[in-house]
Amino acid sequence: MNAWLHILAALVLAPLIPGIINRVKARMSGRVGKPLLQTYFDLAKLTRKGLVESHTASFMLGVGPAVSLAAVCGALCLLPSPASPAPASFGGDFMLAAYCLGLSRLALILAALDTGSSFEGMGASREAAFSALAEPVLFLALLALAVDAPSLSLSGMLGQGLSGALAPERLFVPLLLFILLLTENCRIPVDDPNTHLELTMIHEVMVLDHSGPDMAMISYGAALKLWFFAAAVTLSLLPVQAMPPLAAWAAFLAGVALVAVAVGLIESSMARLRLLRVPRLLGSAGALAALSLVLTVWR
């Protein structure tokens, strides 16, 4: 029961995260901002709307968002809850989680290519390029976590907390996961979720041709993915496994909210990187991940 509680919390609370980010951004620029629950309202509105499909598109345009959402939900099932292991947990499940996220991305990329629009093809190619660079960073960070973990599953690797001051390189893992959160969820400094110039867009340009319930699935999937990474950052920092369940839940939810606030603060204080600079950011993250792994293994 406890294990499924996390999935339920993610499904219900995930749309709150974009709300928190937008609220922080608005407050930082001196505006009141949208309501915290705006994403819920958007989702409700989108599901009520009809579907407009391009004549040139095939079935992939419709399948993409559904597969993408399902794959993210699959990845969430592998993430441990703060007070118990994940509903589905086995040795090496972090590979499955990483590739569930990959599948989700692939489905959206194929749907974007399917429309035949040159802008969407461009966005898809950028998304594919950046995620290919982000993947080694994710695996190196997870391997660094796996070295000292009792088991090779996400449930064993996350929730241990940082192992004290003797291993300062462990501090890099939450930082790397946070950089991955920004990259994978198309936030500043990698991509600007609010931009409306097709030439500079990455993720948002891929979904231009989607409408109605399809768009709702994409927005909901994006919120769930944001939750996945925010939860991973929080669980890699906090020793929730050693806490009593209620305290663990409280610390976890506060941590996820704080991660959202941090994303908002970064988006308000940083400019977006030039497209050519993004590989350098991910390259540096990769070097940091390699450093963390090498030092962890070496100790």
């Binding site: 004290g164 001051a165 300062p168 390189e169 350098r280 070097a287 940091l288 450093l291 030092l295």
Partner: peptide, 22 residues
């Protein structure tokens, strides 16, 4: 002991930063 370890890790990171800075 912990302080010197943190210092040395910071030094290694600084060394890598030398190579990445533009």
């Amino acid at each position: 002991m912990a302080a010197i370890q943190s210092l040395l890790v910071a030094l290694v990171v600084v060394n890598l930063a030398y190579l990445a800075v533009t």
